[in-house]
Design a protein around this nucleic acid. Structure first.
Ligand SMILES: [Mn+2]
Ligand SMILES: [Mn+2]
Ligand SMILES: [Zn+2]
Ligand SMILES: [Zn+2]
Lengths: 142, 142
DNA sequence: CATTAAATTGATAACGGTTATCAATATAAA
DNA sequence: TTTATATTGATAACCGTTATCAATTTAATG
């Protein structure tokens, strides 16, 4: 059964890039998170495993993981990126509370279908999409 | 008939802020653009009217216009913001060509309706949303 | 019109997440 | 081992945007 490590190794070999302890460790730590991972939290956790890992290596590795499709980078409100596991994860979109930052994942097949229709109508080849519903969550309204 | 200038003046008065020549000029120049306005293009055009206008004043004024709802700030791919007139403009979402950057505006009533349903389902009060369909346009495929 | 308190302006420094640079080091193929 | 090349970590640079601050302008009041 294929997993993320195999896929990453294959991707690296294909591009004449190298499988290194740092890349292995970063992927391991990343996968230990759930949902949307912020750079700051990830970096903090990674320093526990390897205190001298350069921040540049972390950014570079996340870019590689993005390039090979294993993870996805989001640019939500505040300018900071978050990263999300993509392998063996269903597509979904996000509800985001603008007060507390909480996010809820959802999927809606008809919305997905209409998006495709719209692209056809305008002659676009859809690669991906971003749909974020921004509002106030139940807790924050209390 | 109310226009953007009246609304902006009212907003400023309400907040104990002041109606200044700079704010008037920035709004005028902004309204002379169509669609999505990039800071760089706006700034260039503004310097024609007032060569010594400080960039901070431009940012501050765009923030005010955003706060009072006359314009909306988008954060597309590249980190730069674009601004869009909101007053007397129908809501719409965007198709974006990731190759040439061209954008097409569209609206789809059913998608809007389902978005509201999803928010109800999860107990969110929807404030606004962002839907971007990213793909390759007809021209770029040739 | 003159006075006055408070808001605004423009210049510029600072910010912060991210990327580029580069010499030292590690990888992997031969 | 040898060798070519990719990678790493430190750190400077980047760049759009914000914060700071003294000088100026606004608008309410007398
Ligand atoms: Mn998600
Ligand atoms: Mn919409
Ligand atoms: Zn909330
Ligand atoms: Zn295009």
């Amino acid at each position: 059964m294929l997993n993320e490590f195999d896929l990453f190794k294959d991707f690296l070999r294909q591009q004449n890039l190298r499988w290194t302890p740092q890349r292995k460790m970063i992927l391991e730590v990343f996968l230990s998170f759930e949902g949307h991972v912020e750079m700051e939290a990830l970096h903090k956790q990674i320093l526990i495993h390897q205190p001298d890992l350069g921040i540049a290596t972390l950014y570079r590795t996340l870019k590689l993981l993005t390039d090979c499709g294993l993870i996805e980078a989001h640019s939500f409100q505040n300018g900071k990126k978050t990263y999300e596991r993509m392998f063996h994860v269903r597509h979904h979109d996000h509800l985001i509370c603008t007060r507390c930052g909480d996010t809820v994942e959802f999927e809606h097949p008809l919305i997905e279908k209409y998006q495709l229709q719209i692209c056809e109508q305008y002659g676009f080849t859809l690669k991906h999409h971003k749909m974020e519903l921004l509002g106030i969550c139940r807790n924050c309204l209390k």
